[in-house]
Structure formats: structure tokens, C-alpha cells
């Protein structure tokens, strides 16, 4: 464990907490894409298949349970909670995410570390996470005004993978046999997808204005 990875995990945890806060405090999920939340639930379930077989550390196990539990809870809330579900922007959240699922799965069948069920699903979860934010970014552009908590959620979600890139650089420099090309390349693509969001987020922060994404 290094400071970059810890910072990344904490930032990721903050993004989940911000989203839970928004949903429970405002009883609203306006501006949040259910499709992105469902993709993230799939990412965590397919990535943590080793949850009960490989014990890395208490921290690792607890964080996996938190991410799986929170992502499923958010999907449940947005689909079935009688108050929250009314504020879901159903007509704006129309990204055809089957394409993302299909492409990621095909890519995982071709590019993986070992051709085992666990490794193929792990690679699938890495590729899927890289593009899982797309429905959310499209929804933010369509809904125009971005409420603070939704904006902060996306900001922290993007920042966490940037910390992980620093972590991979650090591990590559300090550990001889460390190579995680699948994670690194996907992580770079994932962070790049946030680039324009970060730019407009910074501008809105500098001008102390509401976050406006160009349609």
C-alpha cells in the first residue's frame, strides 16, 4: 500500500459517500445516471469475485464489501425507493450502455492476463469501469445545470483513478516485477474521459459560478 493508492481509495470512498448523502439528504437522484450506477455495480461484482477466496487484508475485504454494498444500495434506491425514484431523469438517461457491456466483454475475452473465469471477469471489470462514467457525463450535459453534489460526485470519481495512475507509476518504479498494463491503459483512458469535465469544473470553481457543461 502506498500513499497514492490510499488517497485513491479514500477519494473513491468520498465519491460514494457524497452520492449516498445526496440521495438520502435530498431524497432525490436528479442529475444522477442510473445506468452509470448499474455499470458500477457490475464492475464491483465482476471484479471482486475473489472476495471469499483470496484474503489480502482486512482493509481490502472491508472496502470491497463497502463498494459492492453501496453500489447495489444506490441502484436499489434509484429503481425502487418510492420517493427517490420519482426524481430520476428517465428521459435524459438514455445512453445505450449495452454497447459498453458488449465491447468490454469482447475485449476481455481477447485481452486478459490468464484465460480463467476470474481473470476474464477481472479484465472485463477494468475495461467497463473505464467507460462506465459515459452515461453520467452525457446526462450532465443534457440536464445543463449540475447540482453541487452531483458535480462533486463526478469530480471525486474521476480524481480517484488519477491517484491510481500515480500509484502504478510509483509501484512500477519501486517493485521489480510490477506490471499491470490492463489497469494502467484503462486507467489512463478512464481519467482522460473526465478531462473536459475537470476543465469545466475548474472554470466554474474559479469563477465561483454554477457548473455549466456545454450541451
Amino acid at each position: 500500500m502506498n500513499i497514492f493508492r490510499l488517497a485513491g481509495d479514500m477519494t473513491h470512498l468520498i465519491s460514494v459517500l457524497v452520492l449516498l448523502l445526496k440521495i438520502y439528504a435530498t431524497k432525490s437522484c436528479s442529475g444522477i445516471s442510473l445506468k452509470t450506477q448499474e455499470l458500477y455495480a457490475i464492475v464491483f461484482v465482476t471484479r471482486y469475485l475473489d472476495l471469499f477466496t483470496d484474503f489480502i487484508s482486512l482493509y481490502n475485504t472491508v472496502m470491497k464489501l463497502v463498494f459492492i454494498g453501496s453500489s447495489l444500495a444506490i441502484v436499489w434506491c434509484m429503481r425502487y425507493h418510492r420517493v427517490v425514484r420519482r426524481s430520476y431523469d428517465r428521459e435524459l438517461d438514455t445512453f445505450r450502455y449495452w454497447i459498453l457491456l458488449g465491447v468490454s466483454f469482447i475485449l476481455a475475452l481477447v485481452l486478459h492476463e490468464k484465460f480463467t473465469l476470474q481473470e476474464v471477469f477481472w479484465a472485463f471489470s477494468i475495461y467497463l469501469e473505464a467507460v462506465a462514467i459515459l452515461p453520467q457525463l452525457v446526462l450532465l450535459q443534457r440536464s445543463g445545470n449540475v447540482d453541487n453534489l452531483a458535480g462533486q460526485y463526478v469530480f471525486f470519481l474521476g480524481a480517484y483513478r488519477a491517484f491510481y495512475i500515480l500509484n502504478w507509476i510509483y509501484r512500477y518504479l519501486t517493485e521489480q516485477r510490477f506490471t499491470r498494463w490492463i489497469s494502467c491503459v484503462s486507467g489512463l483512458v478512464q481519467t482522460a474521459l473526465y478531462a473536459d469535465f475537470f476543465y469545466y469544473y475548474f472554470i466554474s470553481w474559479k469563477n465561483n459560478a454554477k457548473l455549466q457543461l456545454p450541451a
Binding site: H12, K114, S183
Partner: peptide
């Protein structure tokens, strides 16, 4: 030897 494919990252 521990294979480096053990996923110790989240």
C-alpha cells in the same frame, strides 16, 4: 512464489 496476478488493488 506469489504470482503477481494476485489482485491486491481495489
Amino acid at each position: 512464489t506469489q504470482t503477481d496476478s494476485v489482485k491486491d488493488e481495489l
